[in-house]
Write a protein that binds this DNA or RNA. Structure first.
Length: 417
RNA sequence: CGGGGUGUAGUAUAUCGGUAGUAUAUCUGUUUUGGGAACAGAAGGGCAGGGUUCGAUUCCCUGCACCCCGACCA
């Protein structure tokens, strides 16, 4: 994409009403636009990041048998009354609205009820199980205090998978697969080295749930990390009994602040019971389905990446989620440079190498460099009189201080993989 | 929801009970072009409503919005 066609532009000044680093950098770079407290639009660059993250999650969910669908944002009052979660006294984050012809509907703040109610129609026999539907969708929560930029909003985009299993053993096996898939997702998203599988409170059907916590001062949670074991324990369940349970020595843990980027949860029959979600087993008995839920907030994940992967100049996107792999800058106003830069842009595009081409006329080199640092693409390629005279193009990784001059062939072999 | 704070131009800020200033971004022109370039010119602003006052952006009240701390967070 040519930068001259991108309608967003970068800002020099940080927004006054944002403290969090993720919001500051994402707004300055033109990735997101704040509509109101806790509500952000994703601009072209930001959407590309979200799409990359979505693709990673989709691949990993499909890998473990997930089947993608799309559930509606509107929620049926009667359905939620079955699980006793319609009442505002029970759930205080509902957004609800009245229908013109009477009645009331809610906006999704989670999906368990809708899935349990819907799947009842498709689950009759043990032959129908297990089932692993999931979807990406926009979720609404009437938070009394949204904060931390895109990491805790009133509207956010998430992936939720629900597992429907015949029994606890089948559920447990899938739960472990999901846990591994989650680890892969965060590794692929570039934050695996800072993300710990964390034991958290499990509710009435399991001792623990598992959170995926990324160590960051911007986090809202406190966890106790056992670096050697590669696990952590959430403060909410941190006690001697749990330590003994997990075989963790108190002397080996370190207290950290962390961001919860994902969560998996055994639901047991919590929702199967109110929705009478049962199947006939081999002997003709009615058996309740065992459920699990597996969620990831894509905006929060994107915000977390920015929080932990940035420097004083801007964002440092991992290649896997960067809006573009390459940021190509054409410096100077000479016709020769323009021609060569255009040729290179066409060549890279033809080779399916994602490139953002800073073709803006009359913009000083310093400004283009500063923007490239702020926007944070993994590779910066400079086309200028100087680079051409030296024999080609200058390529520099966002993580490096100095670039080097390479020929077109060398450039292609570095970028193609 | 409890506590605290802030609303001035696209963005970031300053001053003042008496013509609202600066930076940046934007537009025009000239020069410039490897780390946010120089000069000249132009355009653009007091959250909303009420009160006090000769006069309110400034002081007071109400509302709304936003931020921070805490509570809450499948």
């Amino acid at each position: 994409m040519k930068q001259s066609q991108l309608f967003t532009k970068t800002q020099k000044e940080s927004p006054a009403d944002e403290i969090s680093k993720n919001a500051e950098l994402l707004i300055k770079g033109g990735f997101i636009h704040k509509e109101m407290a806790g509500v952000y639009s994703f601009l072209p660059l930001g959407l590309r990041v979200i799409n990359k993250i979505e693709t990673i999650i989709r691949e990993e969910m499909n890998q473990i048998g997930g089947v993608e669908m799309r559930t509606t944002a509107f929620q049926n009052k009667e359905v939620w009354e079955k699980s006793n979660r319609w009442d505002d006294e029970v759930v205080d984050v509902w957004f609800k609205t009245a229908l013109k012809n009477g009645g009331e509907i809610g906006l999704s703040f989670t999906n368990e009820e809708a899935y349990a109610n819907m799947l009842k129609q498709y689950i009759q026999s043990y032959k129908d199980l297990p089932m692993y539907p999931y979807d990406f969708k926009t979720i609404f929560r009437n938070e009394t205090r949204s904060k931390s930029g895109i990491m805790r909003g009133r509207e956010f985009y998430w992936k939720a998978l629900y597992s429907f299993s015949k029994d606890n053993a089948e559920h447990a096996a899938f739960y472990e697969k999901a846990k591994e898939a989650y680890k892969k997702i965060f590794k692929r998203a570039g934050i695996g080295h800072l993300t710990y599988t964390t034991f958290a409170s499990g509710g009435s059907f399991s001792k623990f749930s598992h959170e995926f916590q990324t160590v960051s001062g911007a986090g809202e949670d406190t966890i106790y990390v056992d670096e050697a074991k590669g696990i952590a324990i959430n403060k909410e369940v941190y006690n001697d009994e749990v330590l003994a349970d997990l075989g963790v020595d108190k002397a080996n843990v370190v207290e950290q602040r962390a961001i919860e980027v994902g969560n998996i949860f055994s639901l047991g029959t919590k929702f199967s019971t109110p929705f009478n979600l049962t199947y006939k087993n081999e002997t003709g008995d009615d058996v309740e389905v065992v459920m699990g839920s597996y969620g990831i907030g894509l905006g929060r994940l994107m915000g977390t990446i920015v929080e932990v992967l940035s420097d004083d100049k801007g964002i440092i996107w991992p290649e896997s989620v960067a809006p573009f792999k390459v940021h190509m800058l054409a410096l100077g106003e000479s016709e020769n440079v323009k021609e060569k830069a255009n040729e290179l842009y066409e060549l890279l595009s033809k080779k399916n190498i994602e490139v953002l081409f800073d073709d803006r006329a009359g913009v000083m080199a310093g400004e283009k460099f500063a923007d490239a640092d702020l926007l944070g693409m993994p590779y910066r390629v400079v086309v200028s009189e100087r680079s051409l005279k030296d024999g080609g193009y200058e390529i520099k990784k966002r993580t490096e201080d100095k670039g080097k001059i390479v020929t077109e062939q060398e450039l292609l072999s570095m970028l193609e993989n």
